Computed example of a mutant assay.
Amino acid sequence: MKCQKKILLISSVLITLIGLFIFIWFCVRGFFYEQFIIPTGIISLEKSSQFGDFIGGCCGALFALVGVLLLFETLRLQRTEISESRYVFKLQQFDNMFFNLLTLYNSIISSMQGKSFFTQKQQSIYQNFNQDGGRKIAKNAYLSFYAENEPNIAQYFRVLYQIFSLISHSKLNEEDKVRYAKIARAQLSKDEIFFLYYNANTIYGNKFRRYINEFNITKHLSILDKLEFKKYCVSLTNIENHLLHVAFFEIRKGIKECIKQNKEWYKTFLQGAIAIKCNKIDSFNIKFIVIRTLKEIPDDVQQGLGFNEFTPEQLSSLFYDFLVDVFLYSNFFLLNDKNTIITSRMTREATKITITYEVKNAKTNIRIV
């Protein structure tokens, strides 16, 4: 649209200049050469009429064309202004509904004794969860929580669902949709996102899954905060747990970058003691490599701190569970279905251990939100 406007304005200026040039050129010829423009003498009506006919037919047509072009631009600007006015009105209507739902959301939170309700419940579930339990046991732990708190929690999730459904189905542009989604997502605490994730893994939240993927609502949920990853956290300090969360968040972004931009992603942690590499083989095949060297780690290193607490076998299992979560469970099988297969193999050398993972799907493209 901006390019068309620029071309239209440049064309109008050029045509106007051409018309002025023709007019001036004939005036100069009439005064100096043809001599039908004589300010102090008798004017030749015949030559003057011919001159006027030419100027009117040629320059007049050019100036009329400029008028048509500028009229077209004026009408286009009017249409744009009308369209923008309608959009502003539509945005105001949406704004009222959106913030009314946020007010309702906050009133429900208040009736549940605030966000501390979720913090206390999350800590209780996490502490009582068997560290050897898998996803099925984690799901059952959430279902027990839901059964005990259904009156409040069911209404809470319904309102959250309506907020993101309203954004998704609105006629706003993508930029405004993302802006409102970020406002809504900013209302959620880490513990709320924890329960939202597990709710979406049950029949109670299956309709919510598409909005979680669309707006990446659970992007800031640490993978180590999930119940099924508790077995990896028991030997970690709080700072190690946090630094591993940062590392996995960066690795996830790297995988997404590798898939979208079709280029290799490479990152090292613990000053090269841990190296991560991701390659997109084709649309259906991703290769993910973890290299653990025997390099001594300095005491002042922080980035990736915590990886050094795992044996090679634990590290292999941790990254396998991480990839399964990233490509399958975090997307609720909506992006990469159950046909996606993740395999791993470990090779040992004198100075390093290499763990290679392959993510394959013969039916759909490998994707990640």
Rank of each mutant, 00 (worst) to 15 (best):
C58E: 05
Q303C: 06
F249Q: 13
V88H: 11
A154K: 12
V178C: 12
V324R: 14
R348A: 02
L101S: 00
E358R: 13
F99A: 01
M112C: 04
N130Y: 08
R185I: 12
K219F: 12
A61N: 09
Y180D: 09
Q302C: 03
K182L: 08
Y87D: 07
R252S: 12
K263T: 14
L244R: 10
C3S: 14
A186Q: 14
L143A: 03
I37Y: 07
G254Q: 09
L243F: 07
N152Y: 07
Y126E: 04
G114H: 08
F327P: 15
K171P: 00
G205C: 04
D95C: 01
S49F: 09
F21E: 13
R79E: 12
M112N: 06
I289A: 05
F307Q: 12
N279K: 13
E257K: 14
Q93M: 03
F319E: 00
I342Q: 13
F26K: 13
N140F: 01
I109R: 00
A181R: 14
R210T: 15
R292A: 09
Y204V: 02
F284T: 09
S85P: 01
N206P: 03
L244S: 06
F36E: 04
I22A: 05
C258H: 04
T343Q: 08
R348M: 05
W265H: 12
A61W: 06
R348G: 01
F118P: 02
A181P: 11
V68N: 10
A141Y: 04
F21W: 15
I18G: 08
V13Q: 02
S144W: 02
L91I: 08
I289Y: 02
F307W: 03
N206L: 10
N128W: 00
Q155W: 05
N201G: 15
F21Y: 15
F248M: 07
R252K: 14
I22G: 07
I212M: 02
